[in-house]
Amino acid sequence: MTVPAPRGADPTEQAAAAMSLRGLVKRFDTKLAVSGVSLEVPAGSFYGLLGPNGAGKTTTLSMAVGLLRPDAGQAVLLGSDVWADPVAAKARLGVLPDGVRLFDRLTGPELLAYHGLLRGMDAATVDQRARELLDVLELGTGNRTLVVDYSAGMRKKIGLACALLHAPRLLVLDEPFEAVDPVSAARIREILQRYVAGGGTVIFSSHVMEVVERLCSHVAILSDGVLRQHGTLDSVRGDSSLEEVFVRVVGGRVSTGSELAWL
């Protein structure tokens, strides 16, 4: 590899990282949203980023994909620094952004065509892949409904289709399963699993333990802007369930049984 490895790191492991975050820091006004997150996402892994609401998951992922400028730190995607060499870093990256704010006054097919052409693909390839994605995700290849009128599950699916269209090697998904019905969630899971099996890398944020436990090879737990634990699923979870580990790490409140007695 031409990318020089940092001191002390094993060069082979370094080359295998699809995403590498080094000391990312972000401060909003007076609040430290993310304080020094460093994380290696190995290529071919299915990485779950867990954390309670407001833990800094979205902020971290936004900095990682070049949507939010960090106050300090570095994000390297597939060997290219996202802030120093954005064109190379973003070329093989697919993103499902926070809350799936898409250009929602387009219809599904139009939105896919837009994303494809924006990525510099030729029209014939865009058409062929877009039709296939619409079909597989059950969005309807002839659907003229505007995306703004889609249901939450359909929005996630069209967002995912946009992120997949240019066949990226790294997928960064912010809450892909939030507010999605079970049928759509199953379809999304299946597609992501196939993508990882084909050598792709997925990192997604969630606060649903079951999904993470079922899908992921690796997990990281973030709370109050600090990375509490990370590693393979088994190493993080140990003997207990992921939920127990999560609550312990995050420091959830223990119920005494006496509060909200009036309910």
Binding site: L106, T107, P109, E110, L112, A113, Y114, G116, L117, A123, V126, D127, A130, R131, L134, G140, T141, G142, N143, R144
Partner: peptide
């Protein structure tokens, strides 16, 4: 109408 469309790019 949910009819098949030839090409998403042409639509856009």
């Amino acid at each position: 109408t949910d009819r098949e469309i030839a090409s998403p790019t042409a639509l856009l």
